[in-house]
C-alpha cells in the first residue's frame, strides 16, 4: 500500500455548477464569467455641462450586443481598464438595441480618467444590474417624475419609455431642479417631447443668472404649478439624499401611497453583484435589491436617506 497514491484530482468548475442561478446577463455561448465585461467602443462624446458628458457606447461583439437588454432604472458597471469600474445608471432608451448612452459626472478617479478619453476608445461594461422602475405597473396612471441635479440621468430611461408608450399614461409631468441654469441636462429633448407627447417639463434653479427667465427657488416650489391627484399618481424621485426627504414627505402628505413612490438610491459599489457589501443600506443591497426602491421599503431601511 505505501506505493499507492492518494492524489486528489483537480476539478474544474463548469456551467452545470450554476444551472440553478445563471444570471441573465451571463447568458453567453461560452463560459460563465461574472467579472468579464462586454467590450464597447465609445462612438460619441458630448459635453453637456461643465461637469457632465454624455458617452454613447456600442457593444462591439454582435452576439453580446444582442444579449444585452436592460430595463429603465437599471445600471451597469463601466470599466476603464487600469483605472477601475464605476456604477453608472443607463440614460438611454431600452428599445435602442444598438447603442447605450451614459451621462457621467466627473466626480472620482475613474470618471476623471474617462473624461480624458476620445471617441473610438474601448471600454467595457458589466451588467445590467439592479432593479428597475415598474413601468407596466405605472401604466394607466398620471406620472410625476422629480429630479434634482444629476438625478435626471437615471430618469431619462423611464422618460424614453413613457414617450414610446405615451398612450398608456395619463398626465406626465417632470419637475427638474438644479443649482444654476448652466447645470440643466437634456432640456433640448423636451421641445419635441412637449409638443408631440405632452410630457410637460417644469424647471427651477436655485441661483438664477441674468439670462434665466424661468422659476427660481427650490424644487418643492414647483408643486404650486401642478395639480396632483394622489389617487391616480405614481411618483418617481431621483436626486441628492436631502431632496428625497423633502420631496417624499411632501408627496406623502398629499396622500400618494408609499408604494407608488419610487426612488433611485446611490452608493459606492465595488462588485455590483451583492457580494462585497459596500453598498449596503440597512439590510439590503443597493446593487441587487435597488437602486430603485419604493418609498415604503426605503422608509424601513435605516441609514437610507
Amino acid at each position: 500500500m505505501p506505493d499507492k497514491h492518494f492524489v486528489i484530482p483537480r476539478q474544474d468548475i463548469n456551467r452545470e455548477d450554476f444551472t440553478s442561478s445563471i444570471p441573465d446577463f451571463n447568458r453567453r455561448s461560452e463560459f460563465l464569467k461574472t467579472d468579464m465585461g462586454y467590450k464597447c467602443i465609445i462612438t460619441n462624446i458630448v459635453r453637456l455641462t461643465e461637469q457632465e458628458k454624455l458617452f454613447k457606447l456600442r457593444i462591439i461583439d454582435t452576439l453580446e450586443r444582442n444579449i444585452f437588454r436592460f430595463k429603465p432604472g437599471q445600471f451597469l458597471m463601466l470599466e476603464l481598464p487600469g483605472y477601475g469600474d464605476v456604477p453608472i445608471s443607463i440614460s438611454s432608451s431600452n428599445s435602442n438595441h444598438e447603442y447605450i448612452e451614459l451621462c457621467i459626472r466627473k466626480a472620482g478617479h475613474v470618471t476623471s480618467a474617462l473624461f480624458n478619453l476620445a471617441e473610438g476608445a474601448h471600454v467595457a461594461i458589466r451588467g445590467p444590474f439592479g432593479s428597475a422602475f415598474p413601468m407596466d405597473e405605472m401604466s394607466g396612471h398620471n406620472v410625476l417624475l422629480i429630479a434634482g441635479g444629476l438625478g435626471f440621468a437615471p430618469l431619462r430611461a423611464p422618460l424614453f419609455w413613457i414617450n414610446e408608450h405615451r398612450e398608456r399614461f395619463l398626465n406626465v409631468n417632470v419637475l427638474y431642479g438644479v443649482k444654476e441654469p448652466s447645470q440643466l441636462l437634456f432640456t433640448y429633448q423636451f421641445d419635441e417631447w412637449e409638443k408631440i407627447s405632452h410630457i410637460v417639463l417644469h424647471t427651477i434653479v436655485e441661483h438664477a443668472d441674468a439670462g434665466w427667465k424661468g422659476h427660481h427657488g427650490m424644487i418643492t416650489d414647483l408643486f404650486k404649478d401642478i395639480t396632483i391627484d394622489p389617487e391616480t399618481t405614481y411618483a418617481v424621485v431621483c436626486g441628492p439624499p436631502v431632496m428625497f426627504k423633502v420631496v417624499c414627505s411632501y408627496l406623502d402628505k398629499l396622500g400618494i401611497p408609499m408604494n407608488r413612490m419610487f426612488v433611485s438610491l446611490e452608493r459606492r459599489m465595488h462588485c455590483g453583484m451583492g457580494k462585497c457589501c459596500r453598498c449596503m443600506v440597512g439590510s439590503t443591497f443597493t446593487c441587487v435589491d435597488g437602486p430603485v426602491f419604493d418609498y415604503w421599503s426605503v422608509m424601513n431601511l435605516k441609514e437610507a436617506i
Binding site: 455548477d17 461574472t34 457580494k275
Partner: peptide, 13 residues
C-alpha cells in the same frame, strides 16, 4: 456566495 443571483466562480473553484 454560490446561491445568490451572481454565484462566485472564484470561490466555487
Amino acid at each position: 456566495l454560490l446561491n445568490g443571483h451572481f454565484p462566485s466562480p472564484y470561490y466555487l473553484a
